Amino acid sequence: MPDNVLCGLIARSPFKQLRNQFSQVHQAVQLLVPVLRSALDEDWATVTSTELHVRELNQESERVARDICLHLPNSLFMPIPRSDILSLLHAQCDLAQHASEIARLISLTTLAIPAALQDEIRIHLLRAVEVVRHLMRIMGKLDELLESRFRGHEAVLVQTMISELINVEHSSRQRRDEATVKLLGMKDRLPAADLIALDRLIELIAGLSAQAKRVGLRLEQLMAS
């Protein structure tokens, strides 16, 4: 393929738009840490304001995603299939929705996390945020990956990064199990509503990690296609 044709394909690459949209998703996920910290401090005013920011980022990421969908070329000259881009975009939107649901649960329920469970919840969330941070690093390599035509050193590097992401997500699942076991040990001392909300929080955080892994695996499929 002549260089000028390849440059034209890269110029039309949707990866920059995907990366920009994912940057908003990543910002929303990062805000979950101060949401939880404020909840542990029982600073509900800060929880409410930060949750609103998470919600706004989620809504903006959805707006950007819709704009990408509406303007994505339907052309044989797309560097990768249009359906694959839309699938990846949908997975990223689901990730933002997970972040919004976590913040909303903490805010609306003014969730009081027992002191004996706080370390497990905090570590569980930090590991989930780390999974998404790994994914952000991978997204930053997409244009270079396209330039290399999904081969060579860049492809190997991204594959290694995806493997690391999968390992971190596995560690996140272990943190989920530890938090769940701790919660079950407290079930006789907690109101039923608190038990349900805390279990839901643990599962939502685990879902955040799992969704980030799904996005990473979707990228891996793109490389293999």
Score class of each variant (00 low, 15 high):
residue 64 V to A: 13
residue 40 L to H: 04
residue 49 S to Q: 11
residue 49 S to T: 13
residue 87 S to P: 00
residue 91 A to P: 00
residue 36 L to Q: 08
residue 86 L to F: 06
residue 54 V to I: 12
residue 35 V to W: 04
residue 104 R to L: 13
residue 68 I to N: 04
residue 13 S to M: 09
residue 27 Q to F: 15
residue 53 H to Q: 15
residue 30 Q to G: 08
residue 23 S to P: 02
residue 85 I to W: 01
residue 112 A to E: 13
residue 61 S to M: 06
residue 86 L to V: 08
residue 42 E to C: 12
residue 101 E to S: 14
residue 109 T to E: 15
residue 67 D to N: 11
residue 7 C to P: 00
residue 49 S to A: 11
residue 71 H to R: 09
residue 109 T to V: 07
residue 16 K to A: 11
residue 16 K to T: 13
residue 84 D to G: 05
residue 39 A to W: 01
residue 89 L to N: 15
residue 64 V to K: 08
residue 92 Q to T: 10
residue 51 E to W: 02
residue 26 H to G: 06
residue 86 L to H: 00
residue 22 F to E: 04
residue 19 R to D: 12
residue 37 R to P: 01
residue 44 W to A: 08
residue 15 F to I: 03
residue 64 V to M: 13
residue 20 N to Y: 03
residue 45 A to F: 03
residue 62 E to Q: 14
residue 12 R to K: 10
residue 72 L to E: 05
residue 43 D to A: 15
residue 39 A to G: 02
residue 36 L to I: 02
residue 22 F to K: 06
residue 47 V to Q: 05
residue 52 L to I: 05
residue 89 L to C: 09
residue 106 I to Q: 11
residue 29 V to E: 10
residue 86 L to R: 00
residue 12 R to G: 14
residue 66 R to I: 06
residue 81 P to K: 14
residue 83 S to A: 14
residue 91 A to V: 07
residue 7 C to L: 14
residue 32 L to P: 14
residue 60 E to I: 02
residue 87 S to R: 05
residue 72 L to G: 01
residue 9 L to V: 03
residue 73 P to K: 04
residue 103 A to S: 15
